[in-house]
Amino acid sequence: MSLPLSYRAEAGNPWFSWQYVRDNSDTILAALREHVSLTGWAVLIAALVALPLAVAAYWYRALAAPIIGLTGVLYTVPSLALFAFLAPYLGIGAVTVLTVVVLYALLVIVRNAVAGLHQVPPEVRDAAEGMGYGRWARLFRVDLPLALPGILTGVRLATVSTVALVTVGVVLGRGGLGQLIFAGFQNNFYRAQIMTGTLLCVLLALVLDLLLAGVGRLLTPWLRGRA
């Protein structure tokens, strides 16, 4: 991405420039598209893997400690180190970035889902059992619906932090909007480009968060009206 010198000559080095956005809309949209697809896939895959893990930790007490402990240790490992461990094996590319962000999103969702499942009141569980619900029926009709707010909190947190984390993918050349930010830094510290990438990141996180909050409201009609 090379920028004509005339921009800086005309307007110094502004923090934001519509001229830049107009002239580079293709690049910006491509970066945004990459960012959205990485985030979307990451959260989807993470949720699909995290839920069975959370249920396993909920059903079998022996599994709960290792699962929660392992996620805690993994969460402490810096993202750049995780990139470093995986890149020599998975190669330089989108697959590695996706794997790293899936792992972090996974941790956040598992922890919140386990917390949510443990908040199901014991009386409700007993009542379900007394009504003759089996293990699976209770899971789908009682436990999971009641744990839904916790699970959704996890998914929202995972989404917002994934949007921020994807930018670290620049180390492999696949950082979505991070690519824009980093290129701006390298192109003579071009502020408008850095700022455009940053604002889009924050906006994307906000929009996805609101979207998921809306989905959550639709999925839990019984919570509406309560504060």
């Binding site: 670290v168 701006g184 830094f185 510290f189 502020r191 850095i194 940053t198 990141c201």
Partner: peptide, 18 residues
């Protein structure tokens, strides 16, 4: 905490020096 969660580290690291 919500705002800082959504700001990429990379963005702050590149913006603050400017």
């Amino acid at each position: 905490s919500n705002i800082t969660l959504s700001i990429p580290t990379l963005a702050l690291l590149t913006i603050l020096p400017l």
